[in-house]
Amino acid sequence: MPEGSASLQLAVGDRVVYPNQGVCRVSAIDVKEVAGQKLTFVTMRREEDGAVVMVPEGKVLAIGVRKVASAE
């Protein structure tokens, strides 16, 4: 991610809310080559049905992904 860009610090195992998809758990953060460029992807699995969603790390905030609020 370019320096100075806002990002959401995620780790494998974090629970997040993905708008219009529901609650997901981060299952992987991997670098993949797409069209000759190396990009970091956040892979999330929906808790409702296990569907897998992959989002480029740089788009996580723009999409509206946020961490699940704690009970505290």
Rank of each mutant, 00 (worst) to 15 (best):
residue 68 V to M: 10
residue 38 K to A: 06
residue 30 D to W: 14
residue 63 I to E: 14
residue 49 D to R: 01
residue 11 A to V: 11
residue 43 T to W: 09
residue 9 Q to D: 09
residue 8 L to K: 08
residue 16 V to G: 01
residue 61 L to T: 14
residue 11 A to H: 11
residue 7 S to W: 07
residue 42 V to P: 00
residue 25 R to T: 14
residue 27 S to G: 03
residue 14 D to V: 03
residue 58 G to R: 09
residue 7 S to G: 13
residue 1 M to Q: 13
residue 53 V to R: 03
residue 69 A to P: 11
residue 15 R to A: 05
residue 45 R to K: 11
residue 49 D to K: 01
residue 72 E to R: 09
residue 22 G to T: 05
residue 60 V to Y: 10
residue 53 V to A: 03
residue 17 V to E: 09
residue 57 E to D: 06
residue 34 V to I: 11
residue 32 K to P: 01
residue 72 E to C: 08
residue 44 M to H: 02
residue 52 V to E: 12
residue 29 I to S: 00
residue 36 G to L: 02
residue 46 R to K: 05
residue 44 M to S: 00
residue 4 G to I: 12
residue 6 A to C: 04
residue 41 F to M: 14
residue 33 E to H: 08
residue 15 R to C: 00
residue 5 S to K: 12
residue 57 E to N: 06
residue 49 D to V: 02
residue 47 E to K: 01
residue 43 T to I: 14
residue 50 G to E: 03
residue 8 L to T: 09
residue 48 E to M: 11
residue 20 N to H: 09
residue 62 A to F: 06
residue 63 I to S: 13
residue 63 I to N: 10
residue 43 T to H: 06
residue 57 E to H: 10
residue 38 K to M: 11
residue 44 M to Y: 03
residue 3 E to W: 03
residue 45 R to G: 02
residue 47 E to D: 05
residue 47 E to M: 06
residue 1 M to K: 13
residue 33 E to P: 03
residue 60 V to G: 06
residue 11 A to S: 12
residue 5 S to V: 12
residue 33 E to K: 06
residue 34 V to Q: 05
residue 41 F to N: 02
residue 1 M to P: 13
residue 26 V to L: 01
residue 65 V to N: 03
residue 45 R to D: 04
residue 17 V to Q: 07
residue 60 V to D: 05
residue 46 R to Q: 03
residue 27 S to K: 06
residue 31 V to Y: 08
residue 13 G to P: 00
residue 44 M to I: 06
residue 9 Q to V: 11
residue 3 E to K: 08
residue 28 A to R: 10
residue 31 V to T: 10
residue 69 A to S: 13
residue 30 D to F: 15
residue 36 G to C: 00
residue 23 V to R: 04
residue 60 V to P: 02
residue 24 C to S: 02
residue 56 P to Y: 08
residue 46 R to P: 01
residue 63 I to K: 08
residue 34 V to K: 04
residue 63 I to W: 05
residue 66 R to C: 08
residue 57 E to W: 15
residue 18 Y to D: 03
residue 40 T to N: 06
residue 48 E to F: 13
residue 10 L to Y: 04
residue 15 R to E: 05
residue 40 T to C: 01
residue 59 K to V: 14
residue 33 E to C: 05
residue 28 A to M: 06
residue 71 A to K: 11
residue 49 D to G: 04
residue 67 K to G: 05
residue 24 C to R: 00
residue 37 Q to W: 04
residue 14 D to L: 04
residue 6 A to T: 11
residue 13 G to C: 00
residue 6 A to V: 12
residue 8 L to R: 09
residue 9 Q to L: 09
residue 51 A to S: 09
residue 59 K to W: 15
residue 51 A to D: 05
residue 17 V to N: 07
residue 40 T to A: 07
residue 26 V to G: 00
residue 29 I to D: 00
residue 23 V to N: 04
residue 42 V to R: 00
residue 4 G to C: 05
residue 26 V to T: 00
residue 42 V to N: 00
residue 63 I to V: 13
residue 10 L to E: 01
residue 21 Q to E: 09
residue 62 A to P: 09
residue 3 E to F: 05
residue 36 G to M: 02
residue 56 P to V: 13
residue 48 E to A: 13
residue 7 S to R: 13
residue 50 G to Q: 04
residue 39 L to M: 13
residue 39 L to R: 06
residue 1 M to I: 12
residue 40 T to G: 04
residue 66 R to H: 13
residue 28 A to D: 05
residue 7 S to Q: 12
residue 3 E to A: 13
residue 45 R to F: 13
residue 63 I to Q: 11
residue 62 A to Y: 06
residue 63 I to P: 09
residue 11 A to I: 09
residue 13 G to T: 01
residue 42 V to G: 00
residue 63 I to T: 09
residue 37 Q to T: 10
residue 43 T to V: 14
residue 67 K to V: 14
residue 28 A to F: 05
residue 12 V to E: 03
residue 55 V to M: 09
residue 57 E to Q: 10
residue 68 V to N: 05
residue 61 L to A: 14
residue 68 V to T: 07
residue 61 L to S: 14
residue 44 M to P: 00
residue 12 V to Q: 01
residue 54 M to N: 05
residue 28 A to Y: 05
residue 43 T to M: 06
residue 10 L to F: 08
residue 3 E to G: 12
residue 33 E to L: 12
residue 4 G to F: 09
residue 48 E to P: 04
residue 13 G to A: 01
residue 27 S to D: 12
residue 72 E to D: 13
residue 43 T to R: 04
residue 58 G to M: 09
residue 40 T to F: 07
residue 52 V to F: 11
residue 13 G to S: 01
residue 37 Q to H: 09
residue 33 E to G: 03
residue 35 A to Y: 09
residue 16 V to H: 01
residue 44 M to G: 01
residue 7 S to M: 11
residue 53 V to N: 03
residue 43 T to F: 08
residue 49 D to P: 01
residue 53 V to S: 04
residue 24 C to H: 08
residue 52 V to N: 04
residue 15 R to F: 14
residue 30 D to S: 13
residue 50 G to T: 02
residue 62 A to V: 10
residue 2 P to M: 10
residue 43 T to N: 02
residue 16 V to D: 01
residue 29 I to R: 02
residue 39 L to E: 09
residue 11 A to K: 14
residue 64 G to S: 07
residue 2 P to C: 03
residue 54 M to A: 05
residue 27 S to F: 13
residue 16 V to Y: 04
residue 68 V to P: 07
residue 52 V to S: 12
residue 71 A to N: 12
residue 25 R to I: 15
residue 57 E to M: 15
residue 19 P to T: 04
residue 31 V to I: 12
residue 51 A to F: 14
residue 68 V to C: 08
residue 37 Q to S: 08
residue 17 V to S: 07
residue 58 G to H: 15
residue 67 K to I: 15
